[in-house]
């Protein structure tokens, strides 16, 4: 039996531990410290106590941003939990050419979020494809301000997120559907259950844990939405900045030579606190599954 020095396990985990410490732990801890200062990108950083947090309670734009994030979550969670499941059930069948549809549904996932948002921006602008077609067909008498109206812009961004996320969650559901017992489906069929009844009484219970996992993942990513709103609003956060998400606010305050890193860090901590709920739920689910 070979003698093992006490530090051997530490040596083995050292590369990963150093990586985590430098790129995850240290920035996270530094964010906590920065939130109590008036730090700028260049030097400086006086301790200012809870001043940044007091400002949070007085920031009207943050209220809009939180509302946008919550609306994003409330709309995206049901849509992106159910639609990909239906899609997965459809493409699960072994039909000729079905792999083409699977690939087609997955394509938006591999496309860059920024590129996709730019394309949607061109499609939705006042003189874009949607307004042009709708006016030519006589559906609209004038262009709809998809990108310059607060609520239409938010709706456009949500539509983009849903469209882009369908394929990703469909793949997760496809693997989960593989574990649903075929015998149960056959037994239900023999008992006279139709496709809708089999979906609700066999398929849904079979993928319930996956649905919970998907819901939590969507909640977290919806609360942290950035690319779609940023690109569709050209970085301005829509008219009057009313379509900012919390992450966009953090970016606005922290960017450039004169970034207000202290306040941006306080906002980051707030976002962390808001998203910790769904994350804890995810951990609990994982533990349960284990």
């Amino acid at each position: 039996m070979t003698h093992q020095r006490w530090f051997t396990p530490w040596l083995l985990v050292a590369p990963a531990a150093v990586w985590l410490a430098v790129f995850s732990l240290w920035p996270s801890l530094n964010t906590v410290v920065l939130a109590f200062t008036n730090a700028k990108p260049l030097g400086g950083g006086r301790f200012t106590g809870v001043e940044n947090f007091a400002r949070i309670t007085d920031d009207a734009q943050l209220g809009d941003a939180l509302l946008n994030s919550v609306i994003y979550m409330v709309v995206c969670v049901p849509l992106l939990t159910l639609l990909p499941l239906l899609l997965a059930v459809l493409v699960q069948r072994k039909l000729p050419g079905i792999s083409f549809f699977r690939t087609a549904f997955y394509t938006p996932v591999i496309a860059s979020a920024v590129v996709v948002a730019l394309i949607w921006g061109w499609v939705l602008e006042e003189r874009g494809l949607v307004n042009g077609l709708a006016q030519q067909l006589g559906v609209l008498s004038g262009p709809l301000p998809f990108l310059t109206d607060r609520w239409l812009l938010l709706l456009s961004a949500i539509s983009l997120t849903v469209w882009k996320g369908l394929g990703y969650y469909m793949i997760i559901y496809l693997s989960a559907l593989g574990n649903v017992s075929r015998e149960l489906h056959e037994a239900a069929f023999v008992d006279g259950a139709g496709p809708v009844r089999r979906f609700f009484n066999v398929t849904v219970p079979g993928v319930r844990n996956t649905m919970a996992l998907v819901s939590v993942l969507i909640s977290v990513s919806a609360l942290r939405v950035f690319s779609e709103l940023y690109v569709l609003s050209d970085g301005t956060g829509g008219p009057g900045g009313q379509d900012m998400s919390v992450v966009m606010l953090i970016q606005m305050y922290s960017r450039g030579f004169t970034g207000h890193l202290g306040y941006a860090s306080a906002l980051s901590l707030l976002l962390f606190a808001v998203t910790i709920g769904p994350m804890l739920l995810l951990l609990r689910l994982n533990r349960k599954a284990a």
Binding site: Q61, T236, G237, P239, G240, G241, Q242, M252, Y253, R255, G256, F257, T258, G259, H260
Partner: peptide, 14 residues
């Protein structure tokens, strides 16, 4: 600063 400039633009937009 950049953030101030953004805030002014947003308020003018409103």
């Amino acid at each position: 600063t950049g953030a101030m400039s953004d805030i002014v633009k947003q308020q003018i937009s409103l």
